[in-house]
Amino acid sequence: MSDEMLNEEGNVQRTKKFMYVNRKAPYGTVYALESLEVVLIGAAFEQDVSVAFIDDGVYQLTKGQNTTDIGMKNFSPTYAALGDYEVTKIYVEKESLEKRGLTVDDLQHLVWEDEDEDYAEKDSIKVVSAEELGQIFADQDIMLNF
């Protein structure tokens, strides 16, 4: 991926770092679903994309979701497509998992294929502490919170 792109005026522009922060449970409000829609559209713009899951947002990635009884569409399988959209940096806050009695094994196993290493399958999810995540946030150009 190039670090530069042309802006409206045809001038070279640096790729920006976009961070999407998901803080809410997958159902109950529409934020999680509409956040995922932004991430998927945003992936087409060849920017430096990261996604983070904190607070109840960690529930968005849990595996085995079944929404039959609440009459909502289960959109959780879509997270598995993020790797195909070259969204490969997915951060989950350690403290948020622990507070909810979850471990990374309760989450979907999200992967991406590294073109530079003969399409080797790599883990997308990185569990990080609140402090580490704070440093990652500080490094971003654009923060979109959902």
Partner: peptide, 8 residues
């Protein structure tokens, strides 16, 4: 895309 473009 209009949102992403605004970010860029």
């Amino acid at each position: 895309g209009q949102l992403i473009e605004a970010g860029i």
